[in-house]
Every structure is written in C-alpha cells, then in structure tokens.
Design a binder for these strands. Structure first.
Length: 585
RNA sequence: GCACCUCUAGCUCAAUUGGCAGAGCAGUUGACUCUUAAUCAAUCGGUUCCCGGUUCGAGUCCGGGGGGGUGUACCA
C-alpha cells in the first residue's frame, strides 16, 4: 500500500558472488518489475494452517524470504509478507494428529480459526496452533516477515470494498472462470472428455446447490452454525442486501457492506490480495502450473482488482528421506522443527538456497544426513581456501546469514558421522564423548564440548530419533555364553592376552587410553605369532588375516555383529569393567 | 487429454548471461608401523537421451522425437 520513493540500488550493492545465483537473478527481476509497477518490492507467501506446516510448505516461505533478503542486503526497502489463510474452511480432518479423532469432523466447513486446537495445545484454535508451531521454526531459521491473518482482515472489514467490487463484477469473474470449467471441448470425440462432460452435466448441479442460480464469488459463513454450507439466494448491487440459506436450516438477509462472516472464494480471494497488498513476487507450487489453477486464472482475475499477477516462478516439491517411523506417525510429512532438531539452521537454509526453485530436492533424515553434512563441511573448507565457485559461495552466504545478522554457528566442526558414531557407542554420555574426542586431533585436542555445539546437540537428537536401527551399535548386556564356550584355543588365548596381558603385553587396564588400547588390540596377534608387541610389521598377510579375525571375534562378543566402530574407540566407550564381563572366556 | 519440470561419470548432482564438461560418493592404487564403519593423496570413469536447426562456437537457444516425474478437470 505504501508507495515508497524510488529505491535505488546502493552503488556497491553486492559482491560478485552474491550476484551469481538464482536468488540474485530473481531479485534483479523483482526490482525491474517493482519499478515498472511503481511500487515497493513486496514478496509474499500464502500458507493455509490446516495442519502441520511441513518442509514442502516451507519452500513457499523460504523462496520469497531469500529473494526479499537479497534485496535488503542491497539496501532496498523490500518486504516479505506471509498471508495466513486461516479463514479458509476446515476441509477434512487430517490423519495422524495426536488426540484428534473423527469427532473433529463436526467442524468441517468452519473457518480454521473457529475450529478447536488439538488437545494439549496452548493456542485457542486449530489455525493458531499450527501457525504458532510454524512461526517458532521460521524464527529459528532466520526468516523475517510480516504475518497477516486473513481471519483478522476479513473480520475487520478490511476487504469490504473488494468484496462488493467482486460481487458487482461477478458476471465478468464468472466468465473468466467459465473458460476453465469445462476444458475447451476439442472437436474430437475423445471418450474421456465425453465421460467428463456426461458426468458433469447432472450431478454437479445438485452438489454445489447453485442449480440455475447466479454465480457469486463470495461465500458466507452461516451465523448460526458457523459453516460455509451456504448458498446465496439473492443479492442487490445497490443496497448490498444479500440473502443466504444454510444447510443447517438458517436463512437470513443481511447487508453485505456490513456483514463480516464470509469470504471471497479462493480463486478470487488470492488475486484480490495481490492487489490489496501490491504483491510483486509470489512463487507457487507446481500444482499451480495446470491450466485453470488459481494462479493461472489469477492472470485474468487480478486486473479485475486493478492489479497484475505477480511474478510467480513455480517451485518443485521437497521430499524427505529416512524419516523414522516414530516421527512420521505424527501426521506424515516432517515439519521444519523436525529438521531443525537434527540439523543446524544454516544447513536447512542451505538446502533451500542451493537448489534452483524448479528443482526438487530431498531433506535427508536418515544416513544421507551425514552426507549432507559432509558436503556442507566440504563447502566451508572450500570457501575458506578460496576455491569455491561463486554460486556456491552465494548459497553459503544466504545459509549462514541474513540481512539482519548471522545465524548461530558451530565453532569447531567435527564431522557429523564421527560425532554420530561416538555419541552412539557412548549412549550420549558426554564425559565419555569428550574423552574419546580428546584423542581425535593431537595437534589441537578437544578439551571442551562447548565449541562443538550446537552441532553436537543435533547429532545427539539424530542418534536418538533417526539413526537407522541397523546402524546402531548395540553393546551386549550379558556375555554371549554360547560363543564363549565354543571358542578355539587360539581365540581363548587371544582374549586372555588382551585382558590380562602376558608375553610383553600389560593388563588392559594399565593404559586405558585410545593409544594404549590401540597397541593392545593390535599387539595380541603379534605376540601370538612370536613377535614383539610393538614390532613393526609390513606386508605380512597371515598376520593381517589373524588380526582381522580377532577383530571380528571381538565384534561378535561385544556387539553381536561382524563389524563395528574402531575397536579401541569401542572399548573405551564400553568401559573396562563391562569389557571384561563380556570377553572373559 | 492438457500443462509444467526433467534427462550430464556406476550413483547424487554442478557448469554465472552460449566460450576448454566439473565435484562429492562409489571404484581402483597408494600413504598413515597395523586390510576395522574417524585420516590423507593420486587415479579411473563422458557420443551431456536421439534427430535436425541457429551460431565462429550449443549441456545451455529453436523445432521434432523418445524416456522419466509432477500436477490437473466446474471445489475451496
């Protein structure tokens, strides 16, 4: 609404790499478009809080966010607004929401803000519940925006002029929509089309209750029962007197210019809002690319309200891999909060920033998350070394900071997979984690876990909730008696040597460190073959085979598998007492 | 049916407006005294789906064909 003075890009607006990626190119287009329309660059997202706002919906937020943020980095007064479509009707009861059962079906047809929140929520409506949940994540991800509740707007009468305008132009709107209702009937006798036409001729008229009636782009919410199972029976352009009837039996005549219970139908509502908020940029999902979709129809409807359809690149869907059953039982698709629990905010931002909008991508929750982190760390190293590509640097910059400042970072980056392995075998015992990590880098030992956060916290959450079962290392509770009794003489001797020493080896407790355990475990096979424990041996195939066999034996006895984390690390984590319990023949 | 996206190394993907086709992982080889699910290096690997066109030059642009994917049919 505010027409700002011309916003000129600052002279030294962006570094080279910030101009290199898709976000920057889109920002350029938005600037040109805003100037052409003589308005401020406004980017918009529209979200319907009809259920959990999942990672797919999150692209609806991140895409305009990134573009608006780029504009702000250039010193331009851009705005990102999020329209909460909380005045939309409650369409169906989503599956998998804790405490929500079929009894919620009684609310179908009411605005989302009139439906009670799921049990246990601190919010006072369905819409408020899911909005609050999402907004907490948006904030954590560094997304700054102006939120607009459609319920509040409609209730305040903000759109009354637009509603009356639409009603007066209902025939024009109807004609536009009409073009898409029945597909332009090709002249051929395609049978699918025939079938569609045949089934559409009779049944539909009864269903929407508008048989023979006039088209109205407005739908009242019944003032008696609260639902939109209503039909407008009459409307007078001059007086704005409207009569509607509801399926509940209620019928009344009201003055539409004063009436506050109802909204424009969706396909008209959206273009109206483009005009009202002077939106220049609003991406939409690929489901809008079909002819007749609200975005396509909006091209013709926006001018009815004196505006043009905004630039609206379409984004491809976001997938997700490796979601553990426990979290997916909670309603299907994971939400940003699920992702932020196992990865840092910059990493999540990076996933959305590095892919062009028309590319689909997966947010990895399984083992692929470790790969995601490997790539992330590699990018940070390349950036530090100055070998990263411009577009990569741009994505990195957008991930780690916004125009408002930097996001929390982990000072000391230890590989996610390493941390996962250590956290797993120590059961998250941080004293042990530190003890193991201390030996990781001798030149620069880790003496404190704090610099490893917040990444370490995410790893701990991941190991607890998403690490695949078959990747967990599960240390046996009790000795494998059967296997211990079936040991060969050589194996038995090896275990005794490992635990109690002999032939030059000390008892295992004597040097209970990563280094000491390394020497001990590798030494066993050597002394068994008559070598010194610290002999340097190269290329002895038989020795290598014996060592490998010994390791396999230890894995079987300790974790019941053929392989596992490095033995010294594993022993350290298990602790000497338990090691003795499990390995004593 | 219509619309949109996509096809590049074994896999996942890069390649700024047309300008020498590149990474990661996997593989192979080697180093780290030790063939382990934490390290490092080197190396192998391509008819960019096919046919045609524009161009000095095409993964990129245009036309056609093929494969894969997504959306969608009077509602909100």
């Amino acid at each position: 609404m505010v027409v700002t003075e011309s916003q000129q890009p600052s002279p030294e607006p962006a570094t080279e790499h910030e101009r290199a990626d898709w976000v920057s190119r889109l920002a350029d287009e938005v600037i040109v478009e805003a100037e052409r329309r003589g308005t401020r660059p406004v980017a918009a997202s529209g979200i319907s809080p009809s259920g959990p706002i999942h990672l797919g919906n999150f692209r609806e937020v991140m895409s305009p966010h990134l573009v608006a943020d780029e504009l702000r980095r250039r010193g331009i007064d851009a705005e990102h607004l999020i329209s909460w479509d909380d005045y939309d009707r409650f369409r169906k009861v989503p599956a998998g929401i804790d405490g929500v059962d079929e009894s919620w079906a009684q609310h179908i047809g009411k605005p989302l803000t009139s439906v009670p929140a799921p049990p246990g929520s601190t919010e006072d409506s369905w819409a408020a519940h899911f909005r609050a949940q999402a907004e907490a994540s948006f904030a954590q991800a560094g997304v700054r925006y102006r939120g607009i509740s459609q319920t509040e707007q409609y209730a305040a009468g903000a759109y009354t002029e637009q509603i009356l305008h639409a009603m007066r132009h209902r025939r024009e709107i109807d004609a536009i929509l009409e073009q898409y209702r029945t597909l332009p009937a090709a002249k051929d006798e395609d049978e699918a089309l025939q079938a569609a036409l045949a089934s559409g001729s009779g049944a539909a008229n009864e269903d929407d209750g508008s048989a023979g009636g006039e088209y109205y782009p407005y739908k009242p919410y019944c003032t008696a029962c609260g639902t939109d199972l209503t039909t407008i029976e009459a409307f007078d352009d001059d007086s704005t007197e409207m009569t509607y009837a509801c399926r509940c039996g209620h019928r009344e005549t009201v003055l539409l210019r004063e009436f506050r219970s109802g909204k424009l139908v969706w396909k008209v509502d959206w273009p109206m809002r483009w005009a009202y908020e002077r939106v220049v940029f609003e991406p939409s999902g690929v489901d809008h690319q079909s002819p007749g979709s609200s975005f396509q129809v909006g091209l013709e409807l926006a001018p009815v309200f004196g505006w043009e359809r905004p630039l609206g690149p379409m984004y491809a869907f976001v997938g997700f891999g490796g979601v553990a059953k426990m979290s997916s039982s909670r309603g299907g698709a994971p939400v940003p909060a699920d992702a932020l629990a196992v990865m840092e905010a910059p990493v999540l931002r990076w996933l959305y920033a590095r892919r062009r909008m028309n590319q689909s991508f997966d947010v990895a929750f399984g083992s692929d998350l470790q790969r995601t982190y490997d790539e992330w760390d590699a990018l940070l190293r390349k950036a530090a070394a100055g070998t990263a590509q411009p577009a990569e640097l741009a994505a990195l910059e957008r991930a780690t900071a916004t125009a408002d400042g930097r996001l929390p970072e982990t000072p000391r980056r230890v590989a996610y997979r390493t941390l996962a392995s250590v956290v797993d075998i120590t059961f998250g015992d941080e004293v042990q984690i530190l003890r193991i990590l201390r030996g990781l880098d001798e030149a620069d030992p880790i003496v404190d876990l704090e610099p490893l956060r917040p990444r370490l916290d995410r790893v701990e959450a991941w190991v607890a909730t998403h690490m695949p079962t078959d990747e967990h290392t599960i240390v046996r509770d009790v000795p494998d008696r059967e296997a211990l009794d079936a040991l060969t003489e050589v194996e038995r001797e090896a275990l005794v040597l490992l635990l109690d020493g002999g032939q030059g080896l000390p008892p295992i407790e004597d040097d209970w460190t990563l280094d000491g355990l390394t020497h001990q475990t590798y030494g066993v096979a050597k002394v068994q073959r008559g070598l010194e424990p610290d002999a340097i041996v190269k290329g002895d195939k038989a020795l290598s085979a014996a060592q490998r066999a010994f390791f396999a034996l230890l894995y079987r006895l300790l974790v019941g598998r053929e392989t596992g984390p490095r033995i010294p690390t594993l022993l350290l984590a298990i602790g000497s007492e338990r090691v003795r319990a499990l390995l004593t023949p």
